[in-house]
Amino acid sequence: MKAHTTEPLVSITNLVKHFDISGGFLDRISFAGGLPSLTTTTVKAINGVSLDIRQGEILSVVGESGCGKSTLGRTVLGLYPPTSGKIAFRDMRIDNLSAQDMLPYRRRMQMVFQDPYASLNPRMTVRQILEEPTRFHFPDLSTSQVQDKVAEVMRQVGVDPAWAGRFPHEFSGGQRQRISIARALMVDPEFIVADEPISALDVSIQAQILNLIMDCQERFGLTYMFITHDLSVVEHISTRVAVMYLGTLCELADKKNLYGDPQHPYSRALLSAIPRLGTKGFSHIRLKGEVPTPINLPTGCVFHTRCPHVNERCRNEIPKLLGRPNGSQAACHALEEGRI
């Protein structure tokens, strides 16, 4: 079976990522009491997330649109500098490295995007797309070694190496996604952030890409952070699942635990809403209200405006992620107090 351990490959500690979207000077100026002042608008995309991604696992990140999944993935890879907090790769802190020192980590950690159309350069052939990062990260390889590697990786992802001279638009969506996975694999990564890699694909093609992702996990011991909104897919391929809401980690659990015995009220609502084949009608937990914006975060528990179990403490105090009797971790006062 899969060779995942409990050893962390990537450690995220108290990660905060805020975006300043105040705009230019003139956009920011406002008049309060007749005096001009400058306002700042901040999107609080990630608010104190701590979690380990274990060697060899597929850790899925789920949650509604805008909850910070992509931001988390990008910050971990160093594509966004964190506002505060730490990222470590194999015990080496990497969030404060110089570009030069970061270079080896840029190779060891790769990203696969949702939209293979946008992420592949339309003017480059598949061969060029695959060779470029390889030459950059492995300058010592000879031309023929690089070419061999291109052919080998293309075979691994199931695209005929004879097509290396073609351009991305000559391939189907599924094939293009294989090519972007191939591009990530070219540099022998250890960790891949896959951000909605199947969302743009048809069901029959999704299965091909998911199989490929699972194959790479098994064959190369790859570790993934898998971002998606498809909870049936998460149930199928994950080792563990992180449930996020408004930039906060609500629950972190083994897949079986989360689907069999969800703890956090938001996880419960989310899982109850999965459309299942062969189920008639709806029995989802209805959430009141609307999702607040990450610009005006609710005080206390970020879920309190929609939670059916909210009380006074929830409105004031941020719940901590704590262990549960079933082995999961969840951040909820009601759970801690034994109210639910």
Partner: peptide
């Protein structure tokens, strides 16, 4: 081609 639920994790 759809994951069948139950979290089997096998090939689809």
């Amino acid at each position: 081609a759809l994951p069948q639920g139950g979290g089997g994790g096998g090939r689809l």
